[in-house]
Amino acid sequence: MLPITHYLYLALALFGVGLGGALLRRSLVVALLGIQLMLVAVALCFCAYARFFADPGGQIAALLIMLVGLCELAVAIAVALRVLRADSARAATLLDDWPGTLDVLDAAGTPDRSGTKGQAG
């Protein structure tokens, strides 16, 4: 078995990457992926300690964490699909990133339903 620190550093790096993506990106997709990445990193940490102490309790905690992540994902996907059904152009903007296309659409008054992006200015 490799030292436990290897797994902990890997989990730390993954958690940092997921946290950065969830905080710094405006895209709904990337935010969801970042949160899932953080949850997987925490589960990896629990599994490493479970192996270190030879106690399956850590694996049980990792299982519960992943199930909670699935619950969060289900609600988030439902909200996204609801927005998608209400206004496909606005839902498309939820998948975009950085300087707010929502602001551009609002400034234009009506959302662009042709699938192309609104142009600022």
Binding site: L2, Y7, V40, A43, C47, A50, Q59, M66, L70
Partner: peptide
Amino acid sequence: LIVPLVQLRAPIVAAIVLLA
């Protein structure tokens, strides 16, 4: 990430991660 999970003898967690 399935590889380190399997190395840690947590195949059921690896399966859940794969499903998720």
